[in-house]
Design a binder for these strands. Structure first.
Lengths: 162, 162
DNA sequence: GTATATGCAAACTGTTTGCAGGTGA
DNA sequence: TCACCTGCAAACAGTTTGCATATAC
């Protein structure tokens, strides 16, 4: 989806909700859609404070959290939890639904979509009398690059716990 | 699996790790395996303080967290995040691997197992060069009982945000 | 003009940690 | 005995909130 179009939708959304188009909301929105990575609220805040954004507009932490919540409610961005007490965001518009592969070694995140899994989930929900609203599927393991590292470490003799 | 057997495994585990069988660890272990519900560290702590446990042994919050971590590392219990900054535990022994259906209305948690989904996950990981270590799949929606409630609410006129 | 936003700092939640004293093997 | 544990309270991270001030419409 074109950036212009997404931007227009954002403005329309604010209008219909009688929310104001403030410079902060604009900056946060732009920054969130400028990246194709996943990011935490904290990361986004840092990006904006560090002037990594050309506009150099700084925004308070509170506003970042508030605005991300807003964007999520509106469906512009989605969140997935890292499994360790943090929320990762990603923009959704212009992006098909997908699930994630997370490398537990280096943190890399890959995306995938598998329609067969999606269909089976629907079926499972149905069988249990559930009306499926959303799902979160996270596959965790070692990515291509880390598999060797992990193997080497094992070969070098275990010193790990558990 | 028999309780006695699980208990024996727990003691064996402690022994092999040179960990001590303290009254606190014993009490936490027993309490965790006495329930078939999912629970948070906080909940378990409350259960124990409230003397809901016949032994009335109280244990500090810190020890509850430490012991649950221990039990998780050892594979006695598993954790799933609620999606909102809390960890839910469940005991694993005598319990096949399964995934969860969560009602976003009443919080009810159902379990399911679908081998086809499991296989497809392996396939996806393989296709991406990942070595799969674990996964977390959470289906969220409205359970049988809540579907009506939600419908009624909708019929009664939307007052919700977003 | 006024409802809505913002920034700040303080509050909150779930969890972890340092340390002095206690306890199981 | 002595390494390992515990309880406490303080520290932490991520996030939310109350309130006075600022701003979009």
């Amino acid at each position: 989806m074109e950036h212009e179009l997404i931007r227009a939708r954002f403005e329309a959304f604010l209008k219909t909700k009688s929310l104001k188009l403030t410079s902060q909301r604009e900056a946060i929105f732009e920054r969130a859609f400028a990246t194709h990575e996943h990011f935490t609220a904290e990361t986004l805040h840092r990006w904006m404070c560090d002037g990594d954004d050309s506009r150099g507009k700084t925004v308070s932490r509170a506003t970042v959290y508030r605005t991300l919540g807003l964007l999520e409610d509106a469906g512009f961005i989605g969140s997935l939890d890292t499994g360790r007490g943090e929320l990762l965001y990603e923009h959704l518009l212009g992006h098909e639904h997908h699930d994630h592969l997370v490398c537990i070694e280096c943190g890399k995140i890959d995306e995938f979509r598998n329609d067969m899994i999606e269909d089976l989930q629907e079926k499972v929900a149905l069988d249990h009398g559930f009306e499926l609203v959303r799902h979160s599927l996270r596959l965790e393991g070692h990515c291509k690059d880390c598999i060797k590292v992990v193997k080497q470490r094992k070969a070098a003799g275990e010193t790990s716990r558990a």
